[in-house]
Nucleic acid binder design. Structure first.
Lengths: 164, 164
DNA sequence: ACGAATTACTGGCATATGCCACTAATCCCG
DNA sequence: CGGGATTAGTGGCATATGCCAGTAATTCGT
């Protein structure tokens, strides 16, 4: 059987590892009825404390409309609430409901076990290193640098497309 | 504005970096009409030389049915062909069509630039290191070890769930 | 050779994610 | 203050991915 082979494409390698790890974390969280993606999203919501959708999307490095779609099942199930910000009625602030908090706490215990299993299986050092590398890729400066092949000494193009 | 912050969850960190990098590679390949995911899949098909869907799914670390779904747009557009294996008529072998080969070659040039940009922007050393770490996660032994918390000296459970 | 077990997919349903067009609210300038 | 520009989301459409329930083909044990 053809086995997984080193991949020359960083993007493909990243996606493949994501599929694998998603599988493992999904399995771990399955008893809670939350997907690993949903757990991660809820964690970010808590972390930011009632962020607007735009703020949340930026932190998740996710398209705003994609965020809206992803929130829908959680809102439908009463785990998150979207409330119009009275100071700017275009904006909706996102927060976990009480049910969402409870669900998150339950999932958190299982997540903690899975995360610990990851650290010991993969190695704490490598796990830390990996997260450092991933965070650097996700951070805005990396994308900016990627899109700006060379810091043109004649001055940067003022019509540069801004990061999402 | 809330910026991206280090993430305690390896899975969430991985997904977030995947979204970012996917965006960058998608932009790079956009002129070819291929998504980075499709390019990666086509590359794997070429690499394995007419694999069965099962072999391809294993190499991609992807669910078999997910692979089937993902192949559909490519098949619809005449870039890949699925042919029944005469030696086992349950099995379909996957291959690029001539149009698929041509499209792949065109995309390859743009991919190569993007990949080079990634290496210089991120650093060749770190890029290599990252791919090493990702490949280890994607490889079957890691998942097996993750699911087997401790090598029970009393002998492993013979009813263990096999890797996908 | 026959039927049970296994294998390789397919189809349906659900979530994850992105792009684009559109709407509503707000901001800013003359 | 009024209207154009900008901002924040929504909705529709398309791909990416996974689970589960079939279906068809093959294998295997007796």
């Amino acid at each position: 059987m053809a086995e997984t082979v080193p991949h020359p494409c960083s993007n493909a390698a990243l996606r493949r590892a994501t599929r694998r790890l998603g599988q493992l974390y999904d399995d771990a969280l399955a008893p809670t009825g939350l997907k690993a993606t949903q757990f991660g999203l809820m964690g970010q919501i808590r972390l930011l404390d009632r962020p607007s959708m735009g703020e949340l999307a930026a932190a998740m490095v996710m398209d705003l409309s994609a965020l809206g779609h992803t929130l829908r099942p959680l809102a439908r199930d009463g785990l998150v609430a979207l409330v119009v910000d009275p100071r700017d009625r275009r904006s909706r602030r996102v927060a976990l409901t009480e049910a969402g908090e409870a669900r998150f706490r339950a999932a958190f215990r299982l997540w903690r076990e899975a995360q610990a299993r990851f650290e010991t299986t993969f190695g704490a050092e490598k796990a830390l290193l990996l997260r450092t590398l991933l965070d650097e890729i996700a951070a805005p400066p990396f994308a900016a640098a990627f899109r700006e092949p060379e810091p043109d000494p004649a001055g940067p193009d003022p019509d540069r497309r801004p990061g999402r």
